[in-house]
């Protein structure tokens, strides 16, 4: 009897979860798609067209800039932790713990830190560079963990085979292990991209909220998520906020499709 009830609750919960998700997606699409007008994509922002084009471009700039810095650092950290470090070394354990801790810090704390350190202490002002550096620290743990997992999954035999053929450690890592681990690393980078696109709290007080395209690394801008937040807070451009939500949803869908594609390749033997 109780199991029957539990089973009912399980089905109801699943129905609620996926029903809610479906409702959210459909609701945003229905209310947003019709406001995706050409003027929303004009290059120049004005208070009458509230164009999202500068925000869209700024988002891409922030994503590109962040990945450019965070990917090598994150992947190299993974290399170090898996293939070079001696696990008993206290410094190495501290690195692992620091990564875990960074992963759990909420974005508003990153925002506060970015403001205190990059914007005020280093005098970057509200700028692209301050935003990028803040979000870089945020996405590091995601990339590090994905790299670690991917490298560990490649296993020891492939390395030993390479050493046996006379390849050095570095060469083994780059020519033999890395290609096999690539899909796993890539899915981490894609996950990080999703985080960056959706980020608001960490960017508000670092990147700032300027409406136009930042002309240099030291100019302020706003990403799509920030743009949408400001539109919905002002309350006068609700339709445009819906339209921005549609674009954000499309971003998320594309990113998820990419990561599914990559992980399918991963499951398919990691070729």
């Amino acid at each position: 009897m109780t199991s029957k009830l539990m089973k009912g609750l399980v089905y109801a919960s699943a129905a609620f979860t996926f029903g809610m998700l479906g409702y959210l997606v459909i609701y945003i699409l229905i209310n947003g798609v019709r406001f995706l007008t050409p003027s929303l994509f004009s290059w120049q922002y004005s208070t009458s067209n509230v164009s999202m084009m500068p925000a869209l471009m700024t988002t891409l700039m922030v994503v590109a800039g962040t990945l450019l810095i965070a990917t090598p650092i994150g992947v190299f950290t993974g290399f170090y932790l898996v293939d070079y470090a001696d696990r008993k070394n206290p410094v190495v354990r501290a690195i692992g713990m620091a990564t875990d801790t960074l992963a759990g810090i909420p974005s508003i704390i990153y925002g506060l830190f970015g403001m205190l350190f990059f914007v005020i202490f280093l005098e970057f002002q509200f700028s692209l560079i301050a935003g990028i550096l803040t979000v870089t620290i945020m996405s590091l743990p995601v990339i590090i963990r994905a790299t670690e997992e991917a490298l560990i999954a490649t296993g020891m035999p492939i390395r030993q085979a390479s050493y046996a053929l006379g390849a050095g450690k570095l060469r083994t890592l780059f020519k033999v292990v890395l290609p096999v681990a690539m899909p796993g690393i890539l899915s981490g980078v894609i996950l990080a991209t999703g985080r960056i696109v959706g980020e608001t709290a960490a960017l508000m007080f670092t990147l700032g909220t300027a409406t136009n395209l930042p002309g240099s690394l030291f100019a302020s801008g706003r990403t799509l998520s920030l743009h949408m937040y400001i539109l919905s807070q002002e309350g006068r451009h609700v339709n445009e906020a819906y339209a921005t939500a549609v674009v954000l949803l499309i971003f998320v869908l594309v990113i998820n499709a990419l990561s599914t594609l990559v992980s399918k390749r991963l499951a398919g033997g990691g070729k």
Binding site: T17, L24, V25, Y27, G198, M228, S232, V238, V252, I255
Partner: peptide
């Protein structure tokens, strides 16, 4: 279908959730 749906849920920006809650 459901596994990607959960991933989608995890990927939706918090601002979109907030906006949805604000309107609904």
């Amino acid at each position: 279908f459901l596994k990607p749906a959960v991933n989608l849920m995890a990927g939706i920006p918090s601002i979109v959730y907030g906006f949805f809650a604000l309107r609904i």
